[in-house]
């Protein structure tokens, strides 16, 4: 079966669930995706009336992680007066994971959130397609079978879907949200742990320190420090990010290479055991920087060191909120 049929089916059942939740007053609002204004785009949308559910859509361009809109500072948007609103969130696997992890970190109350689960088959890497097309304008994109067809004024190109989804999606093991504390309706799964082989990292990890540095600096050098990656990330919810701190100023705010590197370095450290590998950061970067390498490493550190995958359970403490006498300490300096 082709992609469109799959998506249409998902879309229909998702609308049904949303309609039911709204009609039964189980939720006050549903956050979902709606049609974007440009090819390969989509937009987040909050609906509060059951009539509006048909505005919700699902396709492979729904790249924003909707959990971003739930974090305290943004939740006020929905209704500043009423406070504790009940919200349903259209959730692909990583959105569900983000919500669960936010609950674990005490950022939201799962009683107020309904995870409307949908199975995701991967988000199309629009930045990569744009790069391949180059300096021509994309006017229309459609999918047929397993192909993405991109059309412009005087060209038409085809891309294999499996190849042109986000790199994180290729590695994704949690396509639909885990069912935690019965917060999930729709398509959900019971999942305790995932195994991952990180073979995609092997090549990079085998490089020498010098080569790694060169690779990373080359990857990040165009960063404009706009912080779109941070804003779109559901896990970057701090009210005062280290970037904005000025008492003391830990590193420069400029676009000097060292400042760029430190930003991404510290951000990576902060995301260990938290990143849910949604790829939103990569999808939104205006400069088309692919942060996949960092995402995967951050995941790997949490898995290797603490056997932890974020957003799968509401009971397991995330590694950075926990400690144990028996943690590994192979890196400590010891007498010979």
């Amino acid at each position: 079966m082709g992609l469109e049929e799959d998506n249409k089916k998902i879309e229909e059942s998702m609308r049904e669930t949303a309609r039911k939740l709204l009609e039964d007053k189980e939720v006050d609002a549903v956050i979902g995706y709606t049609e974007g204004t440009l090819p390969m785009s989509s937009m987040a949308m909050v609906i509060t009336r059951a009539e509006d559910v048909d505005k919700l859509i699902w396709n492979n361009y729904c790249y924003i992680n909707l959990a971003t809109y739930l974090v305290p500072r943004i939740a006020q948007l929905v209704d500043p007066e009423k406070g504790d609103l009940k919200v349903g969130v259209i959730s692909k696997g990583c959105v569900g994971r983000a919500i669960i992890h936010l609950k674990v970190e005490g950022q939201l109350n799962l009683d107020n959130v309904k995870i409307i689960g949908i199975p995701c088959n991967g988000i199309i890497d629009r930045k990569r397609i744009e790069k391949e097309i180059g300096q021509k304008e994309i006017l229309e994109v459609s999918t047929s079978g397993n192909e993405i067809i991109v059309k412009g004024r005087d060209f038409e190109e085809k891309f294999a879907f499996d190849e042109y989804i986000l790199n994180v999606c290729k590695q994704c093991k949690v396509k639909s949200p885990p069912n935690v504390d019965d917060a999930c309706v729709g398509e959900c799964q019971e999942i305790e742990s995932v195994s991952d082989d990180y073979s995609d990292l092997a090549e990079f990890e085998a490089l020498s320190a010098e080569e790694k540095w060169n690779h990373i600096t080359e990857l990040l050098e165009q960063c404009t420090k706009c912080h779109a990656c941070r804003e779109a990330c559901p896990m970057c919810y701090c009210n005062l990010c280290f970037v904005d701190q000025n008492k003391p100023i830990w590193f420069g705010k400029t676009t000097d290479l060292s400042d760029i590197i430190v930003f991404h370095l510290i951000r990576s450290i902060h995301l260990v055991g938290r990143c849910v590998a949604c790829g939103a950061c990569t999808s939104v970067c205006p400069m088309g920087i692919d942060l996949n390498l960092l995402i995967r490493k951050v995941e790997r550190i949490a898995k290797d060191r603490f056997d932890f995958t974020s957003g799968l359970s509401s009971k397991v403490m995330p590694p950075m909120m926990d400690f144990s006498m028996n943690d590994s300490q192979e890196f400590m300096l010891e007498e010979d």
């Binding site: 790694k212 540095w213 370095l265 490493k297 550190i301 603490f306 950075m320 400690f323 006498m325 300490q329």
Partner: peptide, 18 residues
């Protein structure tokens, strides 16, 4: 003990950045 966890990841990330 809290620090030890932190040190582990700092070290891993630094190494990854070359």
């Amino acid at each position: 003990l809290v620090a030890r966890r932190r040190f582990g990841i700092i070290r891993d990330v630094l190494e990854f950045f070359g």
